[in-house]
């Protein structure tokens, strides 16, 4: 068996452990409520949204429903991976892992892949189910290319949060710090980012109260490149018509690559220097 085959097998084994854990069972109803539940709600033909935003096609409906991924999917990723390393550190197994001849970058990749797959697989299934629900309820079916972008973007945002959580887990000496760091980061990007954006926009003299103000939209769009959730939405917006937030598709893809490569680099560097 080659080292890569061993890595894949280990990642699948870890994924299976995490996917069928009690934690996942607890999170499953939340994921069901937030992903297909939201899609079902936004697919209602009599939907009334603020600012008279009516989804005109399935891609727009799925875009609105993507808030479920931002809230529930990313939180599930954090909760699945927050003790990926700290738990082994607490019970002593980390020492044995670190003494194994498999290179640390390979072990790190197994950890990332295993945890990420355990949340990305159920979320992908729920996204597909959401697309079917939207099609069934509104009779508007999402195009194949849009569906692929939607799934890949969701997988990417889950990967970013998984890596943040594992990085926090590798730094934390105990479970409490690991979960505080991971949830804190999730809270910042998911809930506080709007406040942060608004505050910065106000300081820069942008008309904050007017959500239709082009200056505000462009400012917010650019600032969103600094947030994983923002980049996720930029990726989805590449498939929407008439969105002008000052960020081109190329910049969105480039940001996605940077958000993937940089945290992974820091995680592998951290794992290489990790001591029990």
């Amino acid at each position: 068996m080659t080292p890569t085959q061993r890595m894949i097998r280990l990642a699948i084994s870890l994924c299976r452990q995490r996917m069928f854990s009690t934690r996942m069972l607890i999170m499953l109803p939340i994921l069901l409520l937030f992903i297909p539940g939201m899609a079902w709600g936004f697919a209602d033909p009599n939907l009334q949204l603020p600012a008279e935003q009516i989804p005109e096609n399935a891609t727009e409906t799925m875009f609105l429903a993507s808030i479920g991924i931002v809230f529930a999917g990313t939180m599930a990723a954090v909760l699945i991976a927050h003790d990926g390393i700290s738990r082994d550190r607490m019970n002593g197994v980390l020492e044995i892992r670190l003494s194994q001849p498999m290179q640390r970058w390979r072990q790190g990749t197994v950890l990332v892949l295993g945890h990420w797959m355990s949340i990305a697989l159920p979320v992908t299934l729920l996204i597909v189910a959401s697309m079917v629900l939207v099609g069934y309820r509104s009779d508007m079916w999402i195009q194949f290319a849009d569906a692929i972008v939607f799934i890949v973007a969701a997988a990417l945002v889950l990967l970013w949060y998984t890596v943040f959580a594992l990085l926090a887990s590798s730094i934390a000496k105990e479970q409490g710090s690991a979960i505080a760091f991971s949830i804190g980061l999730w809270f910042l990007f998911t809930l506080l980012w709007v406040l942060f954006t608004t505050l910065l926009a106000a300081l820069n003299g942008v008309a904050v109260g007017d959500t239709q103000d082009q200056g505000y939209l462009i400012f917010e769009g650019r600032l969103d490149l600094l947030s994983p959730n923002g980049v996720y939405h930029h990726l989805l917006e590449t498939r929407l018509d008439g969105v002008q937030r000052g960020v081109s598709a190329f910049v969105a893809y480039l940001s996605a690559i940077i958000w993937t490569v940089v945290p992974l680099y820091f995680f592998h560097r951290r794992l290489n220097r990790l001591v029990p």
């Binding site: 080292p3 061993r6 084994s13 892992r97 194994q100 001849p101 498999m102």
Partner: peptide, 9 residues
Amino acid sequence: MTEFALLQG
């Protein structure tokens, strides 16, 4: 044991 055998090679 299988997991550590894979790690050990």
